[in-house]
Design a protein around this nucleic acid. Structure first.
Lengths: 370, 370
DNA sequence: GGCACAATCTATACCGGTTTAGGACGCCGC
DNA sequence: GCGGCGTCCTAAACCGGTATAGATTGTGCC
């Protein structure tokens, strides 16, 4: 909306052959020669306040004056100062995302990068920024939220990786910070939830495997402390019962690749191993394929494998992974719009994204005769 | 340094059974009941200015008064307002990272999440935040840097994924924004570079393969437009020549998994395929293993494969990937400290991280007889 | 003509810090 | 007794916007 032209550097240009004269405190070009609202006011022959009104499309300015002000602002190359705006309006024009995970584990899970990309598509056009924190554990996590609030660093936050009785919900509610939860919490929550049905995908996986002829199907579940881990696990058990196959064997993990590999090893080394394994996420499923191959168990002939997420690798491992397609970018977009609505209007409805569906590739097939 | 206690909410607690009364404009607890420097001044019986001096450890305050002020500030639970500080001091207390990549591709590359985690370990204790932007292409990228500067959103930026004749260098120099480049640019640059020698790892890979008895070794290179793609490619060719094996076959890609898979397919379908392939990154190498298996080419018996990065998956695919171990977290830490030094002192020296070394696992072995 | 009222605009306080110009005071030397 | 100087402190300007009270003008209506 505002002209985005950068003021021309009126200082001597930086000596590009050395970095010793880089004085950060004085060289901030566009800061030192900043055009302020007062300059615009003077030039347009009106008061500061009126300029502010005109620039914010607020009533009480005649059409004629408004256009003149806008024109002058454009001519002078005026850009609003985010800092000044932050101070007087008590907003920060930024949203926050705090991720509490071991960075090593985090790296293998492309969920967040895609999610962030989705968020970004909404924020960037609005001139909002994303403040990201990656912290190692959940205690640091709460402290980080507190700091974000007391610094007034963000206007709202995304709450991901919901856990059972998640302390963040009451804590954020008390802090009074607008938030959006990724998924529906298991407790009363004052915040809108943006969720996706991931149980249907698990049920589809089980039905698919049953239809192929599998009866001994196991589930490598995610963390029992995480809601989506539990949800998928419950969906698995329910689907197994529906198929008349009992509860099915379930191994709990923490969603990490290492744990997925361990779980697979344990399952396949049993005297009567499963003929199919439903993994709670793709990284574990891919590790599972690796372990099977290492043990000389053929995939999918000896053991069928399904994953969850449809990460890019899923299409490129061999055999290509049959998995449930999540859409983290869409999720990011939805979460961002919801959070913005909440911040701006004080209210936002829950959003339910289309259920994640099964994508059939090569890692699940008719079980070989034994 | 300052007491971090959150002011107690003096409003009625939020009704946690409904989200309809969530009024973002009035409920910002710690904002509405903020203790300001004026409160501290009044309570301590001194002027605002003196409080500021005392809190910033500046001379001109008697020891006695200083301690009294600090004590009062602590008692009142005072927290400096980042917004006010930003406005008057013209700093933002945040650093920026702009990543220009297709989010799908980005997700498979755990480099950034680890890098960010490393950056975070430096920033968090200093009370600084990281502003992250993920943009789809490099034209949006420049615009994003411009916005970050003109908004005064950050005090400095990280420049990653250096390209040939990278426009970002002169552009950022002109904007006067402190920056640190990840790797050394191929042009004069006013910014400190934090780099790692990735050529030694490639040379080691080639030497390792040659020692195993390979002679037809190919390289699936990264993007020719990216400096690290070129560097690894040149290192490969040089190492091949050193071994008296000519230049070696090289296929250029864009570092993406899909391109890596394609390249492998092309290489292996030749009448005289290579017996070993050196990949410029792990995701492509893993896709390479998948393609080989799909084509019925055994790894490592028929074709040996090496990667670069040592992403977590590398240990869990089968056969486990022989690769070069990068250390993105260390890199993040070094880059953050360097950028902070630059911002604070106006100068920072280049940093050279310890060279990435080869990690031998199962994907490279003595070639089978043909 | 006079009054109510809306539309337009100005002046100014305000957000919460930092920074600067100076004032009060004590101590020194001459 | 007085100028000079250092220490400790206050008052006020300032950063660049937003918000509000009130001045000015024009119009409609009786």
């Amino acid at each position: 909306m505002w002209p985005n032209r950068i003021a021309i550097n009126e200082e001597a240009p930086m000596d590009s052959s050395s970095n010793s004269n880089m004085d950060a405190s004085t060289d901030q070009v566009s800061e030192s020669s900043r055009v302020t609202i007062a300059d615009v006011a003077r030039e347009a022959g009106v008061s500061k306040g009126l300029v502010s009104f005109a620039l914010n499309d607020r009533p009480g300015v005649s059409a004629e004056t408004r256009t003149r002000i806008l024109q002058v602002a454009g001519a002078l190359g005026w850009t609003p100062s985010l800092r000044a705006r932050s101070l007087s309006s008590k907003r920060s024009f930024a949203l926050g995302l705090v991720i509490a995970r071991d960075p090593e584990v985090l790296g293998s899970d492309p969920f967040f990068t895609s999610f962030i990309a989705g968020v970004e598509t909404i924020l960037a056009p609005e001139g909002l920024a994303l403040v990201l924190s990656v912290v190692p554990d959940s205690s640091t996590e709460l402290a980080t939220y507190r700091t974000l609030v007391s610094d007034g660093r963000v206007d709202g936050v995304f709450v991901s990786d919901l856990r059972q009785d998640d302390v963040r919900i009451p804590c954020l509610a008390e802090l009074g910070l607008p938030a959006v939860t990724l998924g529906r919490p298991d407790q009363p929550s004052p915040f809108p939830a943006v969720s996706i049905d991931d149980t249907e995908g698990i049920r589809e996986s089980v039905r698919h495997l049953v239809a192929l002829g599998h009866r001994r199907i196991a589930h490598v579940a995610g963390s029992a402390a995480m809601l989506h881990g539990n949800r998928r696990r419950d969906a698995f058990t329910a689907a197994m019962r529906d198929a008349g196959l009992g509860d099915g064997q379930v191994v709990d993990t923490d969603f990490s690749i290492a744990a997925g590999a361990d779980a697979t090893r344990r399952l396949l080394r049993q005297s009567e191993p499963p003929t199919a394994i439903v993994f709670a996420n793709d990284p574990m499923a891919i590790a599972g394929i690796g372990v099977a191959q290492e043990l000389g168990v053929r995939v999918p002939d000896d053991v069928s494998i399904t994953g969850f997420d449809d990460i890019e690798f899923a299409r490129y491992v061999y055999p290509a992974l049959t998995t449930v397609g999540a859409t983290p970018m869409v999720w990011g977009r939805a979460a961002a719009t919801t959070l913005l609505t909440l911040i701006r209007t004080g209210h936002a409805d829950d959003v339910e994204l289309p259920a994640a569906r099964l994508i059939i590739r090569g890692s699940a097939a008719i079980p070989a005769e034994r």
